[in-house]
Amino acid sequence: MSDAEIKVSAEGLMRQTGTYKPPRDPMQIVRWTLLFMGAVVMVMPLVYMLSASMKYPHEMFEMNIIPREPTFENYALVLSDGRFLQWFVNSLIIAIATTVSAVFFDALVGYTLCKFDFRGRYIIFIAILSTLMIPTEMLVLPWYMMSLHFGWLDTYWGIMFPGLMTAFGTFLMKQFFETVPDDFLEAARIDGLNEFQIWWSVAMPLVTPALSALAIFIFLGNWTAFIWPLIVTTDQSLYTLPVGLTTFSVEQSVQWELIMTGAALATIPTLIVFLVFQRYIIRGVAMAGLKG
C-alpha cells in the first residue's frame, strides 16, 4: 500500500468517526485576521465612546477602556438637562417626517419612471441620477439661499426640505419596481383600479423589502445629519441632537464626557432600528449593491 493510499484510507476512517478536521487554508487565516482588524477599527470608537461616557473629566484622556471609577453621573446630568430631550424630540420628528416623505415620493417617482412610458422619461431619470454626483457641501449654499428667501430659517421645514425626496431612493425604488411583473398591474387595471390605487395597493406591497431598506437608510441618514441642521438653525430649541451636542464644547473647554454621553444616548434609536430591521438592511444593501 502506497503512502497516498494509507493517507486516503486514514482520512476516510476519520470522516467515519467524525474526528476529521479539514486542513486550514492559509488564506482563510489571512482573511480572518483582516476581518478582525477591520472589526476593531469599526468597533473601537463605539467602545471608547461608551467608556468615556462613564469616566470623570480627569480620566478622559487616559486610554484605558474600563474606567477606573465608573460613573453614571454624566448620564444623569445630560438627561436632567431639558435641552437634550428637546433635541432628541426634534431629531425624532425630523427623521420620521423626512423618512415618511422620502419613502413616499421616492417610491412614487421611481414607479412612474419605471412603469410609464412617456416622452422625456430617460432624461428625467438621468437628471435625477446626476444630482447624486453633487456633494452635499456644494448644495448647502443654494439650500441656504432658498431658506433665507422663503423664510425657512429656524424652522422644522427648513431642516427637512432638502431630504423630503432623494435621488438615491428614487433610483433604488425604480430598480426594484423593475422586478414587479406588469401582469400584476394589468390585472389590477382590468379590475378597475386607478393608477394611484394600483401603485399603492398592488405595487407597493410587492416591494416591501426595498421600502424597509430605504426607510432605514433615510432614517439613519437624517438622524445623524449635522452640517445642514447646523447651518439652517440658530435657535437652540430647534437643534437636532448632533448639533445640540456641540454646545457641550465651549470656548475654554470641551466637555468630552458629556458629548460622549449624549452621543451614546443618541445611538440608542439607531441601535433599535438596526436590531429590529437588520435583516432588511442587509437585504437592502445586498439587493441595491450599494454601501449603506
Binding site: P181, D183, F184, E186, A187, V202, P205, L206, T208
Partner: peptide, 12 residues
C-alpha cells in the same frame, strides 16, 4: 376579465 399566463395573483 382576464386570466394571465403567470396567474397575476397577489402574493401578499
Amino acid at each position: 376579465a382576464m386570466v394571465f399566463q403567470n396567474y397575476a395573483i397577489y402574493p401578499h
